[in-house]
Write a protein that binds this DNA or RNA. Sequence first.
DNA 1: GTGCTTGGTTACCAACGGTTACTGTCGGCG
DNA 2: CGCCGACAGTAACCGTTGGTAACCAAGCAC
Lengths: 125, 125
Amino acid sequence: MVTIERGDAFDPDCPTRVVLDRIGDKWTVLVIGSLEDGSLRFSELRARIGGVAPKVLTQTLRAMERDGLLTRTVHAQVPPRVDYELTPLGASLTGPIATLTDWAETHLTQILGSRDSYDAAAEAR
Amino acid sequence: MVTIERGDAFDPDCPTRVVLDRIGDKWTVLVIGSLEDGSLRFSELRARIGGVAPKVLTQTLRAMERDGLLTRTVHAQVPPRVDYELTPLGASLTGPIATLTDWAETHLTQILGSRDSYDAAAEAR
DNA sequence: GTGCTTGGTTACCAACGGTTACTGTCGGCG
DNA sequence: CGCCGACAGTAACCGTTGGTAACCAAGCAC
C-alpha cells in the first residue's frame, strides 16, 4: 500500500490540492457565508461582500457552480434576475468554514500583536 | 456593542479578512501540515511539500513567522541550518485545518464528478 | 584555488486578480 | 416614438503576485 501518510495533499498531483485551492479562495469562503441562510441574487451578493469586483464575483460563482457547491437559477424577467443558492454539498462546507472563522476571531488579537512586534523589530534592525 | 452580525468578515476593513487571507494561502496550509509533528529545516520542508519554489517558501515562512505561527531558528553552523517549528498558536490551527482537509477528502469524488458533468454540458453547448 | 552543501536572494516573466468602462434587454415614462 | 434606467454581467486594460532560473555567501575538504 502506498500510505500517503495522513496528509496526502503534499503531492502536487493529488486532486485534494485542487479542492484545497478552491476552499482557500477568499471569495469562496465569503460567498458561502453569505448564502448560508438562503439564496441571494447577484447584486445582493455584491453588496453583502464588500469590495468584490463583478468580474471576480462571476468567476467565483461559476467555479463554485462547476464544483457543485451552488446552483445558479436564471429567471427570464424584465430586469434579469439570477438567484444563487447553496447545494447540500455547499451547505456541508459551512461547518468547516465556521470552525476556521471562529479560530480567526479568537486569535485575531494575538496575530495582530505578533505582527506588530515583528514589524517593530524589523524597524529597529 | 457593535454586533457585527455573525460573519464580520464581510467588511473589507475588518482585520478578520487579513487572517482569512493568510489561512487561505495554499502553502501556509501545507506548511502547517508538514510541521505538525515536529520541526523541520528549510530543505526538508521544500522536499516534503511538492512543487514549491524556494522564493515562495521563503515568503510563506516569513509571513507565518510575522504572524506568530512559527519560529525560525538559525544555527550558526558551517552548512547553515535553519529550523522551523510551530508555535502554540500555529499548532492551534492544525485542528481547523484538519477539519477542512477531512472535508476535502470526503467530498473529493463528489466535486470531481460535478466538475465533469459541468464540463460535459459546456462541451455540448 | 575548486567544489560541495545549505539557505536563501536576485533578476526576470507569465498569469491571475482587480478596476473601470461598456453592453444587452426590456419595461416604463415623457 | 425615443430615451432612461435596472440588472447581470462582459471587455479591455493593468498592476501585483506566483513561479522559474540563475546566482551568492560561508566554510571545509580536497
